[in-house]
Design a protein around this nucleic acid. Sequence first.
DNA 1: GCTTGACCTGGAGCGCGCTCCAGGTTGAAT
DNA 2: ATTCAACCTGGAGCGCGCTCCAGGTCAAGC
Lengths: 120, 120
Amino acid sequence: MSTYTPSGAATRSGFSLDTLRYYERIGLLSGVVRSSSGHRVFTDGDLEWLGVLRCLRDTGMPISDMQRYAELARDGEQTLTERLNLLREHAKAVEEHLALLADQYRHLQAKIGWYEGQLP
Amino acid sequence: MSTYTPSGAATRSGFSLDTLRYYERIGLLSGVVRSSSGHRVFTDGDLEWLGVLRCLRDTGMPISDMQRYAELARDGEQTLTERLNLLREHAKAVEEHLALLADQYRHLQAKIGWYEGQLP
DNA sequence: GCTTGACCTGGAGCGCGCTCCAGGTTGAAT
DNA sequence: ATTCAACCTGGAGCGCGCTCCAGGTCAAGC
């Protein structure tokens, strides 16, 4: 199990340093170890968790929901069902968003096709 | 060719009244006719244009790009090629976004599957 | 030993895309 | 004639998700 510097964690997670600090402040990221000098030391476990956050963020979950999920995750096994429900609801929202996006993408392509038909 | 009240246009376009006014202010929506009393009168043409804006907005185009597109559209036929380029670039961005979203959606489903495996 | 760059904290600021408000006018229905 | 909902304008305010800043500490390389 390796450890990572703040900037290393930023690079690997794809979040900026400021975002990592922000996530810790608001409780999305807890239990990050500190060195004797107070510097953060990220573990593989932290990076794995950041991967989860990235998935949720990239699929458009609001931060308030991520906070709820993080809180449940901290509370251990008895919250499994609730976490599952939360993810299922989110997945449903993502499906709807994907459907809308795909639909509007088709309109966009149609528009592009129309423009192509107008050219010399 | 019909006309529509502001609230009618809001309902049909799916934008709020405030958003319609805002779009007009920032130049996304121009040439909206006014009644003698100063009230906006929307036409089918306006609603069609709002449909285009909705497509662009829902696919995540930034307002500054929509403003550019609106400006080009106002300038008539000689901007066809430039408008086409703009839409093509945007379509590329949408494709990338869709790909990312689909990818993260798979991760989400995998996570959900994992949770389901943990339950009684 | 000194430099230099990475890191720390708390708090302010920002860009986006609306959304709301005050204060006033208009017009369809009773 | 009166009511009252819908509309108008200019401008302020907001929620989100960061991002930046000041002022200071720390540590690895020369």
